[in-house]
């Protein structure tokens, strides 16, 4: 395999979630996390799952990642059933989950080393390519604790992109960052997604964030977790989180969200 073919995006995958249900026990109570949830995500589509805490959106993401299993229902990526974690689906967590015993480059190489068919030099070149893509080519030899929160998530993004997955699963990856860093990452993520098309499933409880990033926003409602409503966002890219058009969508979705909100729930708009 040559480097150029390795760097070429694989075709982004169609993701099919069919009638997924999931219950688990928590503190002696049975939680109906997901109830007959079905979702079709097109090739290269950017979909955001939004909803209050406990609506099952993160559970669904974990099930797609293969880290948890559904009680009922089926999942397919590119027509193949999901039976566990796989290199075709990479995950970005809220915490960067970088490994402190490795430097930045070795963190990005971690997943690449498990991918067959590449020489050591090619792997390093691929890793450096993605570090450059996220703007951290000068930090290859840094250690994790030396990076800021935003830089850590950039490394995590490079690490997730490096094995060239077809689907990228993101679980509130920017929630712990400050507003300014977050806004910068919204822009960069949109650019990267447009250059290297991936099917992206992005979980958040920030409505504006969802509207800014997603082609589509799926609104979840809790107890039991269901998809309540879906919105297609037709705004042109690259979107600015502070634009008025974006705010209009956000207001509409927030109104729909508040339909089942309890007083204790808070939403960022």
């Amino acid at each position: 395999m040559t480097l150029s073919t390795e760097l070429q995006s694989e075709t982004p995958s169609k993701l099919s979630v069919q009638h997924i249900s999931k219950r688990y026990r928590s503190g002696g109570r049975e939680v109906h996390a997901l109830d007959d949830v079905s979702l079709e995500v097109g090739e290269g589509e950017f979909i955001c799952l939004v909803g209050p805490s406990g609506c099952g959106k993160s559970t669904l993401l974990n099930i797609i990642a293969g880290l948890e299993f559904a009680d009922e229902g089926r999942l397919y990526t590119a027509g193949a059933p999901i039976t566990g974690p796989g290199r075709d689906r990479m995950v970005l967590f809220q915490e960067a989950a970088l490994f402190p015993w490795l430097d930045v480059l070795d963190n990005v190489l971690f997943g690449l080393k498990l991918k067959p068919g590449l020489s050591g030099a090619e792997r390093t070149e691929v890793a450096q390519f993605y570090l450059k893509l996220v703007g951290l080519e000068k930090f290859t030899k840094s250690y994790v604790h030396e990076l800021s929160g935003g830089m850590k998530q950039r490394v995590a993004l490079a690490r997730a992109l490096a094995p060239n997955p077809r689907v990228l699963l993101m679980d509130e990856p920017f929630a712990a960052l400050d507003a300014l860093t977050r806004q910068q990452l919204y822009g960069d993520l949109q650019d990267i997604w447009q250059q290297h098309r991936k099917t992206i499933v992005f979980v958040t409880h920030n409505v504006r964030e969802a509207v800014c990033l997603g082609d589509r926003v799926a609104l979840f409602s809790p107890h039991p977790g269901r998809i309540k409503e879906q919105f297609t966002i037709t705004l042109p890219r690259r979107r600015d989180i502070n634009s008025i058009e974006l705010a209009r969508y956000a207001i509409e979705i927030t109104a729909a969200l508040k339909g089942d909100a309890r007083p204790s729930d808070e939403y960022a708009i």
């Binding site: 990642a65 293969g66 880290l67 689906r89 989950a97 971690f110």
Partner: peptide, 18 residues
Amino acid sequence: VPPIYARAARTMGSSGLQ
């Protein structure tokens, strides 16, 4: 060990002895 390390590693294809 923070459980997130193992989760992250598993999504990258790490398992078993590795």
